[in-house]
């Protein structure tokens, strides 16, 4: 039987690699830069960068404390709250988009109040893109950072408090730096997820060039009209993914 196992394994590898080869074969390398420089593509790239970085920042600010709570605080219903928090990882993105519409849409229970009180409208806005991206990306950060917090030896915190450090000093000067690599990995992972976000974004924020049309959305739209630009953008996203994998290789590939 070993030949069958080997054959199936080879087929599995081919399944992953053939599309990548196809993409690289299709790309017109000599025109890559000019294709990426077309106004629509360039606008999408800029918007993607801005939105994904904002989403990563938000995920960090909100997700790190959340990860801390999951790692260190016992409270009733903890596993239920945890499950809800990481649900977006397995939720179909389009469902995430519909759910966001039902909560933050113009006439929904949160969105209506946001509009009435602050005149803030999230749907069809760049902020909406950031919200959708944060929604789907934050769980990746939370579980990575939670694992990093759990892996910390509690005695470092003990040592810090016996030296007179307040809880905040312990967090800032001991826990954060010691969990730093884990937090960085979580942030990179969340950023990559945010950058590739499609379903929730198009459902919740729409597909408006320059405002909500991020790179994946532009790829989808341009595939009919300017397939060479769509391919160029795809190659760019593939390059980013490979870079992310390289950045995280110590964390994951070292274990293989």
């Amino acid at each position: 039987m070993p030949w069958l196992v080997g054959l199936l394994g080879l087929l599995g590898f081919a399944l992953v690699v053939l599309p990548l080869i196809g993409l690289l074969r299709e790309a017109s390398w000599s025109n890559l830069w000019s294709d990426l420089g077309t106004p629509q593509a360039w606008a999408a790239i800029k918007l993607s960068l801005v939105c994904s970085l904002w989403a990563t920042a938000l995920a960090l600010v909100l997700g790190v404390p959340l990860a801390w709570v999951f790692a260190r605080v016992e409270f009733p219903g903890r596993s239920f709250v945890w499950a809800l928090t990481v649900l977006p990882m397995v939720l179909p993105p389009v469902v995430a988009g519909v759910a966001l519409l039902d909560a933050f849409g113009r006439r929904s229970f949160v969105g209506a109040r946001l509009y009435d009180w602050f005149h803030v409208q999230l749907t069809f806005s760049t902020a909406g893109v950031v919200l959708a991206e944060t929604f789907v990306a934050m769980p990746f950060l939370v579980i990575t950072v939670e694992a990093a917090f759990r892996a910390l030896d509690r005695r470092y915190e003990d040592a810090a408090v016996t030296l007179g450090a307040s809880r905040w000093t312990v967090f800032r000067r001991v826990i954060l730096p010691m969990a730093g690599p884990g937090i960085a990995a979580g942030a990179v992972l969340a950023w990559a997820r945010a950058l590739g976000e499609f379903g929730a974004t198009i459902t919740f924020a729409g597909n408006i060039q320059g405002r909500t049309q991020t790179t994946p959305l532009a790829v989808y739209l341009l595939l009919e009209s300017r397939p060479e630009v769509a391919t160029a953008l795809s190659v760019l996203l593939l390059g980013v993914s490979v870079t992310v994998l390289a950045l995280l290789r110590r964390r994951w590939l070292a274990r293989a």
Partner: peptide, 15 residues
């Protein structure tokens, strides 16, 4: 952190 204690840990626990 409010007690005036110096604590030496078994395997030092240096940061």
């Amino acid at each position: 952190e409010q007690r005036s204690v110096g604590f030496g840990f078994q395997d030092y626990v240096l940061f």
